[in-house]
């Protein structure tokens, strides 16, 4: 007979972990995939997997690292598998029409759209850097790539975003 849910205390702890980390997991997926339903589905899968692996995780920091790593890799897998978002050059993305100022929600949306056009790995690097505030070493550990690669992808992505935004807002703006 298959066993079911863990004990009440275990379920409570797990529910606490879900509440604590759901914004992080969902946001990494959402900013990467730009699809609310798909991001929630992916986030749920990540937490189901966490439940399966909880016994192997040694500390709260380990849980957070594991969640970031699994979410990032699964999001990358989703895009690669489904080819939902074919890579689009920043050069062909339409520039925002209206002039925007700092804190303008339009600017935020424009930036999110531009980030979504970055190549997959570079996009994930930018999300982990600016959503999660991770430094290049931490990003390298999460994505299992060299620190030098993280730094170069970050620089290139910022240069591309800056160039695109500058065309809309003028050199002094950014």
């Amino acid at each position: 007979m298959p066993q079911r849910a863990p004990s009440a205390a275990g379920a409570l702890d797990f529910a606490g972990l879900v509440r604590q980390h759901q914004a992080m997991v969902f946001s990494v997926a959402w900013h990467f995939l730009r699809d609310h339903a798909l991001a929630e589905e992916l986030a749920q899968e990540v937490f189901l997997s966490l439940h399966q692996h909880l016994a192997t995780l040694e500390s709260p920091e380990h849980v957070q690292f594991w969640l970031r790593k699994v979410t990032a890799n699964r999001a990358l897998d989703v895009v690669r598998r489904q080819q939902r978002r074919p890579m689009v050059s920043l050069e062909v993305v339409p520039e925002p029409v209206a002039a925007t100022s700092a804190g303008d929600p339009m600017l935020g949306e424009t930036l999110r759209k531009l980030v979504a056009t970055l190549p997959e790995k570079a996009r994930m690097v930018v999300i982990l850097r600016y959503q999660e505030d991770l430094d290049p070493t931490e990003i390298a550990e999460v994505l299992s790539i060299p620190v030098g690669t993280v730094k170069s992808q970050l620089q290139r992505a910022l240069a591309l975003l800056r160039a695109k935004m500058s065309r809309s807002h003028g050199e002094k703006a950014i």
Binding site: Q22, A23, M24, F26, S27, W30, H31, A39, E40, A43, G103, L107, G108, E109, L111, R112, V115, V126, I127, R129, Y130, Q131, D133, L161
Partner: peptide
């Protein structure tokens, strides 16, 4: 970018 990519709740 930090502002645009801030966390949001599901």
């Amino acid at each position: 970018l930090r502002s645009a990519l801030r966390r949001r709740e599901p």
